[in-house]
Design a binder for these strands. Sequence first.
RNA 1: GGAGGGGUGGCAGAGUGGACGAAUGCGCUGGUCUUGAAAACCAGAGUCGGGGCUUCCUCGACCGUGGGUUCGAAUCCCACCCCCUCCGCCA
Length: 416
Amino acid sequence: MLDLKAIREDPAPAREALARRGDGSEAVLDRVLALDVRRRALLPEVEELRSTRKAASRQIGEQQGRGDDASEAIAEVRRSGERMKELEAELRRVEEELDRAVAELPNPPDPGAAPQDTVLREVGRSGATGRDHLELLGDLVDLEAGARVAGSRFAYLKGPLVLLELALVRWAMEVAGGHGFEPVIPPVLVREEALYGTGFLPDTEQQIYRVADDDLYLSGTSEVALASLHAGQLLDEPDLPLRYAGFSPCFRREAGAAGRDTRGIFRVHQFDKLELFSFVSVSEAVAEHERILAIEEELMQALGLPYRVVNIAVDDLGKSAAKKYDIEAWLPGQGAYRELTSCSNTTDYQARRLDIRYRPAEGKGTVHAHTLNGTAVAVGRTIIALVENGQQEDGSIVLPEVLGQWGAPARIEAAS
RNA sequence: GGAGGGGUGGCAGAGUGGACGAAUGCGCUGGUCUUGAAAACCAGAGUCGGGGCUUCCUCGACCGUGGGUUCGAAUCCCACCCCCUCCGCCA
């Protein structure tokens, strides 16, 4: 969602930024501007009618208060009501259309968003190949049972993997806390408004599970509930930044992903994730984005995983991000870098849709906050990376020492 | 699942069919007092959207949402949404 006032004065920058996405959204912007013109033509007319009506009504009250006859004036006002209703109806139609068009618009990309995916740096030893996680883990991952019980792309994780997950999450929560992120367990089922506000609707409904009887949706990421935590609130700038580390299961229908990543637990319908989310003032957003990326890298390095950082291409940003970094870990089982985490600067896009503002410390008025999100640990994929990178000649797996104190096993024995 | 109560300004919380958005408290801003701060006292301040001769003026909208009654609705009626309390059930 964009700031109409700013854009009607100078639409060029927004139009050019949107055009970079290559999705035709600059045409939507032009539609928005045309509707805005119509609205502002209609509005003064309606308002003037309302104004005179209001004055007349007040007079009637005074007349009657004095005991005078006001029937003439009442008839007069009643007549003007017809015309006003027509105009108001038309205004409402225009405004509804305008709102819909505005909601369609994606966030204009940041100038720093790359034309194509761009590798910023590679860290750690990559290039190794080996057995993939399914071979290494054997029946610690039970996809057959998952499929029988819930369908394909569901899995049971067992034994040491469970301890590994819990340790991973507990440890990452500790690291996040050290960076000022408050631990949160958010709702997983959310209302439509939360998805609309974060920009997942309207657009990606085919990716989202819906609980029809209760009109709720299963979130694909706790970003949805975390962003909505302060929806409708007017904050004070000194209270910012507000930082949360949310742990939750995530649910994705993966419609349209048929045939892709079908082996193992790389792409499943349900996984657990620790997500970082920040509400910041406008001036802090860019620095916060780098901060979140730095935390993600800190986690990768502490786990000893080889990875690279990618500045994601403008045409692949998703609706809400102005700029996005992915961290891809090297997976020896696939002989490739694959996405493990992702962090986005969504600027004021979600804050506008969710109505999250703050009073600036200096000056008057209110300002929409900026929001950012990033993966701390996507558990399933991190387990894959740890297992495949920790594999030994004999098929056993050595796990990072840091996790030991949080209850993870030091190693997993070779699958039988 | 059964019964009831309620949705009002940043927060808490009054409220009458007409005094032009709304008591009071807290919080906020400015001032007085003070070496400074606190307290006390005085004053100010809602949000959004139009328009303008754009540090200000003006108009409109906004008391959950949408309809209705009325010359006039926070206030009356209807529908919907949401929240809360009690009982039942329950991890």
